[in-house]
Amino acid sequence: MSNQTAISLEKVKSTKKKLVKSNRDLGKLKVILKGFILPIFMLTIWELTGALGLISATLLPRPSVIFTTFIDLILTGNLLQHFQISLLRALGGFLLGGTLGLLVGVAVGLKKNVEQTVDPTIQMFRTIPTLAVIPLFILWFGFGEVSKILLIAKGAFFPLYVNTFLGIRSVDSKLFEVGKVLEFNRWKQITHLILPSALPNILLGLRLSLGVAWLALVAAELMGSSEGVGYLIMDARQFSQTAIVFVGIIIFAVFGKVSDSLVKVFERRLLKWQDNFKG
């Protein structure tokens, strides 16, 4: 008898737990759904006004039209190929510029001497806007891949450079003392003390660099190309195919967001030791 009540009590408890859990999931779902209310509302209005002919289809094609154009482009218009080319350009430029930024940032951060000889020049170049050097790059390297990748690399270099440098210089001097007491050699000092300390800044630089690489990609492709998402946009503009322009913009936006989120996940993993205010 009492045994049975115990069992049923257990049952009640476990179902209660499940309920609590599903309640919490429901709460999370609600929060997410809340974020969707406004966009869905706007899309609906957009679609309706378009369908009623209140706005010009060439200026602002309906969401449904944009979506079907997107499908069409995938099936017949080599959208994936264009996307792949854009991705490779962005990645190439980012890897080139980012790696250089990281390496130079480390060197400048570690050695006062290097800082004094190199940093002023780099800072001078940093103030030159990326867009302003486009004509020069075209003159030097033509419209080919080289000028595009270099342009992206130039953009991606500086955020990683600046943040790596900053991260290295903000290592706690108290920890340096610990390194001395534990007899860290120079190599251990760099790998076990300086770089881990600077990691939060380096990762921030990585995210910023990625963002800039993406922006520079758009600029590079718009300046003239025969392939890539940017080309797709420019080409469609000439023929007033507004829906295609929209597809291109949305691809840039979505992919920019996705790459940023990826780095963020990476960041959260690597920095789980951090003890900061999380809002």
């Binding site: 108290k174 920890l175 003392e177 610990v178 076990h192 003390l193 881990p196 300390s197 990691l199 030791w273 951090q274 003890d275």
Partner: peptide
Amino acid sequence: FQEPRLFPW
């Protein structure tokens, strides 16, 4: 030291 000075990572 007065503070533990551990490596937080």
